[in-house]
C-alpha cells in the first residue's frame, strides 16, 4: 500500500470531529504564519533553492501521475488496473490547490479592502468611490454568505434574505456584468466601420470573407438564400448534375459553413499546434524555474 494511498484514505476520527478539524485548521494557520517569517530569514539563495525544489517536485508529481502507464496490474496484481500508484494522491492534491486558491483569494480581498480603507481614511482623490466599493463589498458578501448558508440549511431562508440576494445578484450584479460585456459590440461596430477598408487585395479578400460569414451565419443569410433567391436547401440528391450541386451549395449559410470548416479549421489547427508547442516549452521553463522572476 503506497503512501499517497494512505494519505488519501486518512480521515478524522468520528468522535470530536469538529474539534479535530478546528485544531487542524488553526495548526495549519499558525504553521503558515510561522513559515513566512522563517522564509524571510533565509538568505535569497536558500529561498530560491527551496522554491525551485518545491516547484520541481509539484510539477513532477502531476507529470508522473499523467504519464506513468495506467495498467499496474503486472507490478501490483491486486491493485485497480485503471490507476497507477500516484493516482490516489490526486484528490489530496486537489484539496491543497483549493486551499492555495482560497489563501490567494483571502490575500487579494485583504489587499483590496486595505487599499480602499486607506483611501477613505486619508480622504485621497475620489475617495467616495472607495466608500461605494466598501459598502457594496460588505453588503454583497453578507447576503451571499447568508444565502449559501441557507442553501445548506445552516440558517433560515427569510423573505428578506431571499429578496435581498435576488436584488443584489440577479437584478444588480448580473445585469451590470452583462451590460459591461455588451459594450464590446459598440466598439466592434465602430472599429469595423473604420478598419474594413479595401486598400489592398488582401484587405479586399478579408472584407469579402467577413461579409459572407457575417450574413451567412445568421438567419438573414438563410432567408436571403432560400426564401428570396429560392435556392434549394440541404444536400443535393444523389447523381445530381453539376448545376444542381452548385445550386445546393450556393446558399450563404453553405458558403459560410464551408469557410468555417474548410478554411478556418485548418488555420486554427496550425495555430493550436504552435500554441501547444509554445505552452509546452513555457511549462518546462516554469517547472525547471528557468523563467525569469519565478523566484
Amino acid at each position: 500500500m503506497s503512501i499517497p494511498y494512505l494519505i488519501a484514505q486518512w480521515q478524522l476520527p468520528q468522535q470530536g470531529r469538529l474539534l479535530y478539524a478546528t485544531l487542524v485548521v488553526l495548526g495549519a494557520f499558525v504553521l503558515i504564519l510561522g513559515l513566512v517569517p522563517l522564509l524571510q530569514t533565509l538568505p535569497p539563495r536558500g529561498r530560491r533553492v527551496l522554491i525551485v525544489t518545491i516547484t520541481f517536485l509539484a510539477g513532477l508529481f502531476f507529470a508522473a501521475e499523467f504519464f506513468l502507464p495506467v495498467d499496474w496490474t503486472a507490478i501490483f496484481p491486486k491493485d485497480d488496473p485503471t490507476r497507477n500508484f500516484l493516482t490516489p494522491a490526486i484528490q489530496p492534491a486537489q484539496n491543497v490547490l483549493q486551499i492555495i486558491g482560497a489563501l490567494a483569494l483571502g490575500l487579494g480581498t485583504f489587499g483590496l479592502v486595505r487599499l480602499h480603507m486607506r483611501n477613505v481614511v486619508q480622504k485621497r482623490a475620489q475617495w467616495g468611490y472607495s466608500v461605494v466599493l466598501l459598502v457594496a463589498f460588505v453588503t454583497m458578501a453578507i447576503f451571499s454568505i447568508l444565502n449559501t448558508l441557507s442553501e445548506k440549511g445552516v440558517v433560515t431562508k427569510t423573505p428578506l434574505l431571499e429578496r435581498g440576494f435576488s436584488i443584489l445578484f440577479d437584478y444588480t450584479l448580473v445585469q451590470l456584468d452583462a451590460a459591461m460585456f455588451s459594450l464590446i459590440a459598440f466598439y466592434i461596430f465602430s472599429a469595423a466601420y473604420r478598419a474594413f477598408r479595401i486598400r489592398s487585395v488582401e484587405a479586399s479578400i478579408l472584407m469579402f470573407t467577413a461579409v459572407v460569414v457575417l450574413i451567412g451565419v445568421v438567419p438573414l443569410g438563410a432567408y436571403i438564400s432560400y426564401t428570396l433567391l429560392g435556392l434549394p436547401q440541404g444536400p443535393p440528391p444523389e447523381n445530381a448534375d453539376w448545376w444542381t450541386q452548385f445550386l445546393h451549395s450556393a446558399g450563404l449559410p453553405s458558403i459560410a459553413n464551408w469557410i468555417l470548416t474548410a478554411l478556418n479549421a485548418p488555420a486554427q489547427r496550425a495555430i493550436e499546434f504552435g500554441v501547444g508547442i509554445g505552452g509546452l516549452a513555457m511549462a518546462i521553463r516554469l517547472w525547471l524555474s528557468l523563467e525569469r522572476g519565478v523566484t
Binding site: 466592434i188 461596430f189 469595423a192 466601420y193 472584407m207 461579409v211 457575417l214 450574413i215 438573414l220
Partner: peptide
C-alpha cells in the same frame, strides 16, 4: 440585423 447594420456601414 446588427450584422446587416455593420455590413451596410462597412
Amino acid at each position: 440585423f446588427s450584422h446587416v447594420l455593420i455590413i451596410v456601414f462597412i
